[in-house]
Design a protein around this nucleic acid. Sequence first.
DNA 1: TGTATATTTGTGTGCGCACACAAATATACA
DNA 2: TGTATATTTGTGTGCGCACACAAATATACA
Lengths: 351, 351
Amino acid sequence: MPKKRVRIKDIALAAGVSTGTVDRVIHNRGNVMPAVKKKVEEVMKVLNYQPNIMARTLANNKVLKIAVFLPNFKQDAFWEAPKKGIDKAIAANQHFLIDLQYYYFEENEVESYIEQSTQILADEPDALILAPIFQQESQLFLKALAKKKLPYVLINTHLPTVASVAYIGQDSYQSGVLAARLISDKQPENASYLLLHLEAAEKTANATHISQKETGFYDYFKKNKKKALIIKKAFSEVNQGKTLGQFLKQVLTEFSNPTGIFVSTSKAYQLIEHAGSLLKNTTIIGFDLLPQNIAYLKAGKIDYLINQNPERQGFLAITNLIDALLLKKIVPPIQYLPLDIVVKENVDYYL
Amino acid sequence: MPKKRVRIKDIALAAGVSTGTVDRVIHNRGNVMPAVKKKVEEVMKVLNYQPNIMARTLANNKVLKIAVFLPNFKQDAFWEAPKKGIDKAIAANQHFLIDLQYYYFEENEVESYIEQSTQILADEPDALILAPIFQQESQLFLKALAKKKLPYVLINTHLPTVASVAYIGQDSYQSGVLAARLISDKQPENASYLLLHLEAAEKTANATHISQKETGFYDYFKKNKKKALIIKKAFSEVNQGKTLGQFLKQVLTEFSNPTGIFVSTSKAYQLIEHAGSLLKNTTIIGFDLLPQNIAYLKAGKIDYLINQNPERQGFLAITNLIDALLLKKIVPPIQYLPLDIVVKENVDYYL
DNA sequence: TGTATATTTGTGTGCGCACACAAATATACA
DNA sequence: TGTATATTTGTGTGCGCACACAAATATACA
């Protein structure tokens, strides 16, 4: 049987009221006699009324002003991916009137974060997408947003606060567990692993992610009662008095030929660049499908990349806002994206 | 700057014609003076006109009758996934008037395929989604569709014919390569592997998939110059005079304790069910996130499942038809889905 | 030059909904 | 009981588009 559409008109007819009254019931605008309201709701249920999103959007005809607040991708290439996803989602939803405004801050300058967040509040957007990298400052900012009743989507980093619309991101702890599994699979007991934190800025959410990954990594060995020697080294250009190259060479001289190296950030390619020649038969695991990482993966220098789907984070941030605010749909408050295991042999299908 | 929408009205005004004429140009309905047509097209380009999909769909108001032609999932659980994806896509696109009709055939009965395909032609759908399992019969059927100018999406199995709208599926060859990589990783030279084809129906596309996986599997070892002993065994209840249990026990007695077993179909769980006790330290790789497979993956009995995203195949089949036929978008003719590597540690995010 | 016909162009309506505003009805209170 | 006001209900318009149909204009031909 061909599908027949139930319209407001049909409900009005069946309930013996006008379309205006049905509209009032649908949108809870009040001023409807309780008995009438009940009757209309019954009819809606019986006829299984589904509002026509096309017509609704068309009639609504509002411009949604969205502020996107992310770290500057010129400083950290990781952030290109969410931006790309956001732009793709906008392109795919051109028929919605969306006024997108980007705001960037520097990952190692709290001041730029505060400055930009003030600017956003002044510009009065209708909704936000943000990565709450600086924990304390973000808490304050989110409070300000709550006060103004501005809906927002958090990506990449979750805060104890409940996101007003949704949190979309990765499970960092589990990605550490996964890395441990991959790096130690088929390896003998008491193998040695190097846990490498490259370019971890202090005080930011990135630090939290990294420590969660670390915990997951250790926990895997504990839970599976697999004995291993794990050495941890961290490098941050800001804090140390040497270059990354010097640092890596020193580490790999002290601790030569580890069974595997787990780079907890997206900078696995830097390890290869600076110390590739020092590595033999070492399993290398890193994060994120940056072009440099992909090149080394294809060349067989990196064994595994765990893809946290940052592009999809951006894409979903937009579509979730559209769903929640324009289409009035209910969206899941927490959305973890898959942790894709990417190897040379399947990487092409993720690009 | 807030986005301003360019409407047909705006083009008409700028070109000094009526909206009707603009409409004629947009849809190539003819009967427009060449000079006028040119002028309108210029204006459209200058103003960068993008038709409003919402309004277009609303005004169009056509029912799209889609026939879905798949193997009976009661016989082969794999086919539940595409159906699920199709149903989800329909639910997510309720505002389009789609009249969906399912047609099932039995994977081991060509007659049922022919019978149902005749029925479909008689029912005169506007478009089709089909898995062309029987090669020869499918070729004939697709010819009939081409003659009637019926657009279709092929899923799961590609035919030499060009799909009128799109092919959506997996790269079977590459999945065999991937399996070989995963099964042999960190294993010594000259390890032994069992290549197990379970329940492979003859003469169907499934047979093609399996042989492509097999080729990919062998090729990996060749290309990487990795020496290995690979034993191949196939079982099909129709052909052999014994049960699967008997078959598996015999195989694993003859060829005991292989380093790894690659089950080329979605039936890896049957291997565990019937011969789990005979396996020790053997890496097991299978396909597809069937509930039974997932249970064994979580229990540590299966090491890897390669996910060919069959649900997404169904989902994309519908959205591609909507894009192509209702929204008049251009869709890529070949769409390979990622080959997800699923292990105990990341399976939850794929469910 | 006038009439019939073909070609080109313009106008009006409906798709389903949201919302402003008008109309009808109920209630308060003198 | 009558009038003012509050509450409830109904009507009309526009969102941007597709398409049927009407109107205007060009062309053919006697």
